[in-house]
Design a protein around this nucleic acid. Structure first.
Lengths: 189, 189
DNA sequence: ATCATTTTTTGTCAAATGGCAAACGATTTC
DNA sequence: GAAATCGTTTGCCATTTGACAAAAAATGAT
């Protein structure tokens, strides 16, 4: 829980009372490797904060290939924003790819907090817009570089992920085949 | 100006008085093809809304290649968010790539509006988070598809852009060379 | 420990794309 | 209207990556 508080306070100030209000609403969710936090077709009803483990967001393109849109490491918000905000069916799967511990807020509680705590909406907005900007900035370089450079960028961006998840997920994030990625790794070392 | 109002009202309600307050702050900026709205290294001091023309956001990677991160069409906000919000030097160029007409708000006026108009901040949050989500969603498919599919996706996403800007900008957005793109276009037709 | 399953590596070949340079076409400038 | 400039197309060849299949290695279950 202290991780969440520390994270929040990077984006704005809250007094102890406000922090308590937020803390009280959080419940702990444990997900096993491969379980879903939320699924395509369903409407997102919760916001999470990863304490432990790695989550990925993925979807299937029209050739049926699985595309990993991004990974979410420890100490970050997990939420299917479009679905959660607009209450429309999601187009992506949010999946635990290692065992995970996640702090959970129901949509109802989350909205109550937004209505109750002055300044909380501003903090949330900052958190979300930073996270989204980061996703754009991480995705962009992948388009223009060759496969080896993409992998090296991945290593820079997610240094703590490489050895904890299957190669195929990394390949599907980088837009290359898993064979190619395997060869690339051999060449690098 | 009515374009801006219509755009805003998609995201929330404002009364006539509030609309007038916003309108009064806007000034008109005309940019010629190739001129910059904001530049890398400088701190963004303005928010724009494109009435006419196409803008792109680009940067240079460490090989010195110019990468187009995205295009902004008519009737969208133009703002270098990271730089504007945090008042830090920008890492990207925001460039008019056709002659443009842009409604302009200074940072001072923009912040005054945020402080004055109840509900305006919520609307702005919605606008910005939707725009950012869109950028992520448009970038992601480009990573995993081959060059021809990328170009076809580009045509879907920006149907009104193709014939108004140089091929090289499209190539730098899709992460392929301009020669390849030229060949791809020939094959498609 | 053994077997079954999953993940990763490797081989072979074909296809896609890049690098480079030249030609071609369109547009602007004087 | 000629020259210069800019944008696009094309040719040639080298390199990268993908598709498919099989082997090897790692992991998990009994």
């Amino acid at each position: 829980m202290k991780e969440l508080i520390a994270y929040i306070l990077q984006f704005g100030n809250l007094n102890q009372h406000q922090i308590d209000l937020i803390s009280k609403k959080a419940t702990l969710l444990a997900l096993r490797k491969d379980e879903y936090f939320s699924e395509a077709g369903k409407i997102a009803q919760q916001v999470g904060f990863t304490l432990d483990g790695i989550v990925r967001v993925c979807y299937y393109n029209n050739k049926g290939e699985e595309i990993t849109k991004y990974f979410i490491e420890e100490n970050n918000l997990v939420v299917d924003l479009e679905s959660f905000d607009n209450q429309i069916p999601s187009s992506a799967y949010v999946q635990a790819i290692t065992d995970c511990k996640i702090l959970l807020f129901s949509r109802k509680d989350w909205n109550e907090l937004l209505d109750t705590i002055i300044g909380w909406d501003t903090i949330v907005h900052k958190i979300i817009s930073k996270a989204l900007r980061q996703k754009v900035d991480r995705r962009s370089p992948l388009v223009s570089e060759d496969a080896t450079t993409r992998y090296l960028k991945f290593l820079e961006i997610y240094p703590n992920v490489v050895n904890r998840i299957p190669l195929s997920y990394i390949a599907s994030y980088l837009g290359i085949t898993q064979s190619s990625l395997s060869r690339i790794r051999k060449n690098i070392s």
